[in-house]
Write a protein that binds this DNA or RNA. Structure first.
Lengths: 186, 186
DNA sequence: ACCTGAACACCGTTCAAGT
DNA sequence: ACCTGAACACCGTTCAAGT
């Protein structure tokens, strides 16, 4: 008769709390116990919604990649090279959108279905004229470059040094542009 | 009168034990207490040789990068592009040489002096005709690509899927070649 | 200089039990 | 179905004390 009874927790609220936590305390600060405290619940309660901590980290990483994917569905590119440039940008923005985003993505296990995930990116590239092999290969290279760049950037002292010499931002642009320019056409 | 008394431990033996441990149990298995046990010593003893666990991980990462650097001093290249291709190869080999090598390098803090580290790589490129800016930029891009690739590869299910479709090895070659080909000349 | 013993403040995870 | 209480087997790190 009254509103449907809602559990105190669900997967989404758990992931959201984890993002709030990583923002405040960094990757090391994300513990199941602290998460539970933040959610007003006891630690074992989390294990009803998630198999273990690694799975939770995987869900966070997936959310970060999803951010980049969604940005790309809103964009539309005239050809596959500019699409890849946009994708590289979107990825870097997604990693940078959360504290320790790159470190998280580098250690989190994959929770999504690889085939779905890969095809989701390959599809727009194929629509722009690449065959599947090339689409997957270009996709993998751009992801690797963006992820590696973000990880390298997370290396504090090196980042400070290189940024003073070069500007990390424009050097990322140039590297990404070089990569995409270097791919062979269809 | 007898041989110089040697302490049970030093930094090098500690790092070596840590590599043995990561090989056996993976990154999660590297704990200060297990390391101490492996070295026949109590855990607090490690803190005489190393500030904290993060520093130890940093030393391990540095050893991995050093492996790639040393491989490059033995090689000699006719021009900066082939030098960069060789460096990319050497990095990937160095990450792959230890279990969880990429994950380790993605999360470990930097223990070396950034300036020394960067110049060490920039020098041979400058000897081959690049100015310092370009040398540092190309270097950063190749490291990012290799590190990101190795991290991406460490993502089990995705690796299995893509490897079946593409061959990760040759796709790495192609991506690296594209990147280096795309760099502008001096 | 280098290491031990004991302790502090945490972890992730399991499991019976509650509702 | 969803959560608590209590417990297990760990952690990293500090610090006085030993040699």
């Amino acid at each position: 008769m009254n509103a449907t009874i809602r559990p105190a927790l669900d997967r989404d609220r758990l992931v959201a709390a984890a993002f709030a936590q990583i923002e405040e305390d960094g990757l090391e600060g994300v513990s199941m116990r602290r998460l539970a405290a933040r959610l007003g619940v006891q630690a074992p309660a989390l294990y009803w919604h998630v198999g273990d901590k690694a799975e939770l980290l995987g869900l966070m990483a997936r959310a970060i990649y999803d951010g980049a994917y969604r940005a790309m569905t809103r964009a539309q590119a005239p050809d596959w090279r500019t699409w890849l440039l946009g994708f590289g940008h979107a990825l870097r923005a997604a990693f940078a959108a959360h504290r320790d985003g790159a470190r998280l993505c580098a250690i989190a296990p994959n929770t999504a279905h690889p085939a779905d995930q890969a095809q989701r990116i390959a599809a727009p590239l194929m629509a722009l004229g690449l065959d599947q092999q090339r689409a997957l290969a270009c996709e993998a290279s751009v992801i690797a470059f963006a992820l590696g760049w973000a990880s390298y950037e997370a290396n504090g002292p090196m980042h400070a040094y290189l940024d003073a010499m070069l500007s990390f931002d424009t050097t990322f642009e140039q590297g990404l542009a070089a990569l995409v320019r270097g791919f062979e056409g269809p």
